[in-house]
């Protein structure tokens, strides 16, 4: 070997660091599997539930019962206490919207009862705010003259 001879070290590629994205993929896959199992395959069984946690159709049925009982008995205080159990954000709106839906289904008597309770609630609310207003009496024949707001309920 002469002085011109040099040792040649080919440049080595830097070692490829293994990616850890596969762990995140595994967690996401597991999360989806767990949610599918817990929400669909073996969902939680409700017991001792509160009326506020009822599904929408059952809440509508409950609300309708309250309104029909109010129309039959005229017991406003009791109707208000029962409505509070449903924890509607706006009970007057909920009653009014349901009255419109029920009327569209052809159930006039039920729609009238819902509208009657909505009117009574709205009147009571106005009274508490100091506005003089007639509180409708609870008879099924009475058609409330107050026009209900025609707002489409947001799901």
């Amino acid at each position: 070997m002469n002085d011109n001879t040099r040792e040649f070290h080919p440049q080595q590629d830097p070692p490829i660091k293994p990616s850890h994205w596969y762990l995140l993929t595994g967690v996401i896959i597991g999360l989806l599997l767990g949610l599918v199992y817990a929400l669909w395959i073996n969902p939680v069984a409700y017991q001792d539930s509160h009326p506020a946690s009822l599904s929408k159709p059952y809440k509508d049925a409950y609300r309708s019962m309250i309104a029909q009982v109010y129309a039959a008995t005229g017991n406003f205080e009791r109707a208000v206490l029962r409505l509070e159990l449903l924890e509607d954000e706006d009970p007057v709106f909920a009653l009014g919207a349901q009255a419109q839906r029920t009327l569209a289904e052809g159930k006039e008597t039920e729609a009238k009862a819902l509208a009657l309770l909505a009117s009574a609630l709205q009147a009571e609310s106005s009274l508490q705010q100091g506005f003089p207003i007639m509180i409708p009496t609870a008879t099924l024949e009475l058609v409330p003259t107050q026009t209900l707001p025609g707002v489409t309920p947001v799901p």
Binding site: V27, I28, G30, L33, L35, V36, Y46, Y58
Partner: peptide, 27 residues
């Protein structure tokens, strides 16, 4: 193991916060 951790988290969420917030009870 990552899948196992994910399944545990999914089941915990499904039986916990997700179940409580869902309004799905029957009469």
């Amino acid at each position: 193991l990552a899948i196992g951790v994910g399944v545990a988290a999914g089941v915990f969420i499904g039986y916990g916060p997700a179940a409580v917030e869902t309004e799905n009870a029957e009469l």
